[in-house]
């Protein structure tokens, strides 16, 4: 099947998963695994950084999971935290096992708007997974962007996802990486504290910068507020939202937040778009 044929099929039958196979499985943190997937007949899923797929564990159910791989090539990669019956079944899949894929869906990170600007990525926990495709793009086309910074917060050192890769990014001269954890034992020599405490240590020109944030909702709110205080425009701050999703095509209603369907209008939004709604409890 060609790449275009896959996309056409997905559009004609958007609720029907296409069968892929697990080719690789790695444990990233105590409760998160990364799966490498191969679509039938070598088709490739063409996606933009920040987009997501609906993954089916046959007989169990389906969950919305962001793509965490390199949009420029390689296998289709998803990083999944085992938190419910579906995500537990997905993370238990072994190489060779079939898996259902629908997608890609949604609006991703503003890669075009980021050109010529300082780019600040702020990730909380597994929020680094949806940001990784953006980071690959930034590093792969490095000359198009200004200063690139990754601020990453995890609960504990064990919860640092893609740890070796984070270390290799830290060693590069063309990206600033700063990591913090909430709690750590004495062998941790890094920073301890919430991710917002890293912002004042980072270097960027707030008048010509763009931020991409992904993590728990409360963390994203506080990061966005801190960035506004640093001089960021509200429409230069982008967040990736999470809600219950059953269809990913704007038909099931579940993912609404105010006037938006997270699946269709997001998951990536500007802070300016969401600020008002994020401030209202249980909206």
């Amino acid at each position: 099947m060609s790449d275009a044929a896959f996309a056409t099929l997905m559009h004609a039958q958007p609720m029907v998963p296409q069968v892929a196979h697990v080719r690789g499985r790695r444990k990233d943190t105590p409760d998160a695994w990364t799966l490498d997937l191969e679509l039938a007949n070598g088709a490739r899923l063409i996606y933009a950084p920040g987009q997501f797929n609906m993954l089916t564990a046959f007989g169990v159910g389906e969950a919305a999971i962001s793509v965490s791989g390199d949009p420029a090539g390689g296998p289709l990669i998803h990083t999944i935290r085992a938190v419910g019956p579906v995500s537990r079944a997905l993370t238990a899949l072994e190489p060779g096992d079939p898996i259902g894929v629908r997608g890609p869906f949604g609006v991703g990170w503003p890669m075009a708007q980021a050109e010529g600007k300082d780019v600040l990525l702020v990730a909380g926990g597994l929020g680094l997974a949806p940001l990784r495709p953006a980071l690959y793009r930034l590093l792969g086309e490095r000359a198009r962007f200004g200063r690139v910074t990754l601020l990453f917060g995890a609960r504990t050192p064990e919860d640092i996802v893609f740890r070796h890769e984070v270390e290799s990014w830290r060693a590069r001269f063309d990206i600033d990486v700063d990591v913090t954890v909430d709690h750590a034992a004495s062998e941790w020599h890094g920073h301890v504290g919430v991710v917002t405490t890293l912002i004042s240590r980072a270097t960027f020109d707030p008048c010509n910068a763009l931020a991409m944030i992904c993590g728990p909702e409360v963390m994203m709110r506080f990061v966005a507020m801190a960035l506004v205080e640093k001089g960021f425009g509200e429409d230069a701050i982008y967040l990736s939202m999470e809600r219950n999703m059953k269809c990913a095509i704007g038909h099931c209603g579940h993912c609404q937040l105010g006037p938006t369907f997270i699946c269709r209008d997001g998951p990536v939004f500007t802070y300016a778009q969401l600020k008002r709604f994020l401030a209202i409890k249980e909206l």
């Binding site: 089916t56 159910g61 389906e62 269809c247 038909h251 099931c252 209603g253």
Partner: peptide, 30 residues
């Protein structure tokens, strides 16, 4: 609004997905 449910037979060889009306008044919805 709708939700989906997956079913499978005892052997796990056959499965299916059904869609049913759902309501924003349920706890599961969100």
């Amino acid at each position: 609004c709708t939700s989906v449910e997956d079913h499978n037979d005892l052997s796990g060889a056959e499965s299916s997905r059904t869609r049913r009306w759902d309501s924003c008044f349920t706890m599961d919805y969100s």
